[in-house]
Write a protein that binds this DNA or RNA. Structure first.
Lengths: 175, 175
DNA sequence: CCTATCATGTAATCCGTTACATGATTAT
DNA sequence: ATAATCATGTAACGGATTACATGATAGG
């Protein structure tokens, strides 16, 4: 019961959203990503057209068309898709993430913190406020579908705090 | 003096290493990446053969062959390459990094923390110890070429600490 | 009316991942 | 000797980014 190696993280994002939200158009998936997991793992909207097609070819989702007007594509997860999602969720992952931060890269190669730090400090601070707001909103409004989103935001908040501290220290010239 | 959009982060990693270490073979680049920036932005070794070729085509580096035996390729940064690197270092970056953590993705979609957290807690703890050791080593041994590496490690340590705290809390069942 | 912005897709290019291969050293 | 690891590359495939396009809706 290991997870299917032909499926990528993008695949599981699509499957996960379809499992949680029911049948969706690519645009609805785009909205779903933008409002939640996209803060931590974004997916360009073109992928949300291409990926469901691949998944349909593999039998993980079904593809239908709206009857009227635009005849938009509508995707729904199949039992096979649910199984693949469950199998993926059931196994641990040894792979550690990397920071992969362009600003950090520049710093490493000797960039002046004065040109890199202020912009990033501001950006991360703004994002931190956003995450705090979202977290507060979820805590109140009874979060949908388990508290995975809540935990994810907590990780995001902690990391944003680290970034704000780090870049503000450098922006202030205290290296 | 904006940075060349045809160059990728991988390009700048190669340019940065060539600028710091002088003419190098792809294998030397691999060693350079592995020992330092690779902890935060890894590059598969095949890229370290392909990327210098692209850079040579653009005039950012020169390609020579060793005279004897293996006739390995040796790359050296050109003035054009130095300029591109300097231009890249001289501009800020508004783009914020994403966490892009597979474990977090699983958590978001409802995975049991018990299957995801312990492995990641252990992995991040080990990495944290590694970073602390490297940091200590650099502080002592007079770090080579500015303190960019030192700052980078400090960011890495702070984030590793956050991850350890996060996953250990979940592993312990205190959600 | 006009112009933003939202909504909805397609196409091309290419970097990056993964797998494949093989010669040199070192260890046992 | 032989296994293991280091060193040094090449090839293929595909997902992701980027750019291109156009119809609907709402605001002014």
């Amino acid at each position: 019961m290991s997870s299917d190696p032909t499926l990528t993280p993008t695949s599981y994002i699509v499957l996960g959203l379809l499992a949680a939200a029911g049948a969706s158009t690519p645009y609805a998936l785009k909205q779903g990503v933008a409002g939640s997991i996209g803060h931590f793992w974004s997916v360009p909207h073109s992928q949300l057209y291409a990926e469901p097609e691949r998944l349909a070819a593999g039998g993980y989702v079904t593809e239908d068309r709206e009857p009227g007007g635009r005849r938009r594509r509508v995707y729904a997860i199949t039992d096979r898709g649910r199984e693949a999602l469950a199998a993926w969720l059931a196994v641990g992952d040894a792979r550690l993430p990397e920071l992969r931060d362009a600003g950090l890269l520049k710093l490493f190669f000797g960039a002046d913190p004065g040109v890199v730090a202020p912009q990033l400090a501001a950006g991360h601070r703004e994002r931190l406020e956003l995450f705090r707001g979202l977290h507060e909103g979820l805590r109140r409004g009874g979060d949908p579908a388990g508290h995975g989103a809540l935990l994810t935001l907590e990780a995001g908040i902690a990391h944003a705090e680290v970034w704000v501290t780090f870049w503000e220290r450098l922006a202030a010239g205290r290296s």
